Amino acid sequence: MVFAPDTEVALRTVVNLINTAANGREGLATLEDLDAFLAAEGFSGGRRRDNAELESVLELRRELAAVWTADEDAAVDTVNRLLRDANALPQLMKHDGWDWHLHATAPDAPLADRMSTEAAMALADVIRGKEMDRMRTCESEDCDAAVLDLSRNRSKRYCDTGNCANRAHVAAYRARQAAAN
Rank of each mutant, 00 (worst) to 15 (best):
T30N: 02
A39F: 10
V76I: 15
V57M: 06
L148A: 07
S155D: 08
K130V: 09
L64Y: 02
D85C: 08
W98T: 07
M121N: 01
G129P: 03
A165G: 09
R167P: 00
R152L: 15
G27E: 08
D108K: 08
M121F: 09
C164G: 06
C159S: 04
T30W: 12
L60Q: 08
R134T: 04
S44W: 14
D77R: 12
K94M: 11
A106F: 15
A168F: 00
R134I: 08
V170H: 05
D149S: 08
D96C: 02
P5I: 09
R152E: 15
D108H: 14
S44Q: 11
D133E: 12
G46P: 01
A74D: 07
E41I: 12
F3N: 05
R84K: 13
T78M: 05
K156R: 15
A180G: 12
W98R: 13
E139L: 14
H95I: 14
A65C: 06
E26C: 11
L60R: 09
R12T: 09
L34E: 04
E139F: 04
A66N: 08
V2I: 13
H95N: 13
M121T: 11
H95K: 13
N153M: 10
A122Y: 01
A75E: 07
Q91A: 14
P90A: 04
G97M: 09
A112L: 04
C164S: 04
M121W: 04
C143G: 02
E139K: 12
E32P: 00
L31G: 13
R25P: 05
L148H: 08
N80I: 11
R167V: 06
L64V: 13
L31I: 13
M115C: 14
N51Q: 13
R174A: 02
A74Q: 12
E8R: 15
N166A: 13
N19R: 10
L17F: 04
N16L: 08
M1H: 12
R12Q: 14
A22T: 07
R47W: 04
A10I: 00
L54H: 01
R134P: 06
S155V: 11
A172W: 00
V126W: 04
T161P: 00
W98A: 13
L28F: 08
M132Q: 15
A88E: 03
R62F: 07
W98N: 01
L54E: 00
G129I: 02
A39T: 11
D50R: 02
E59C: 03
D160A: 12
N80G: 11
L11M: 03
R62V: 15
G129F: 01
N16Y: 02
R12I: 03
A120K: 00
N163I: 01
A39S: 15
E53V: 03
S44Y: 09
A165M: 07
T69L: 12
L150P: 03
T137N: 10
L111V: 12
A146T: 07
E131W: 01
A146D: 01
A66E: 15
M93Q: 14
V67F: 05
E26I: 05
A175H: 13
E139R: 14
E41Q: 15
A106G: 07
N166V: 11
T69P: 08
M121P: 00
L83P: 14
V14A: 14
N80F: 09
G97P: 08
Y173T: 09
T69V: 12
A178C: 00
R114W: 13
Q91F: 05
V76R: 11
V76H: 01
L111D: 06
D113C: 02
M132L: 14
L64F: 11
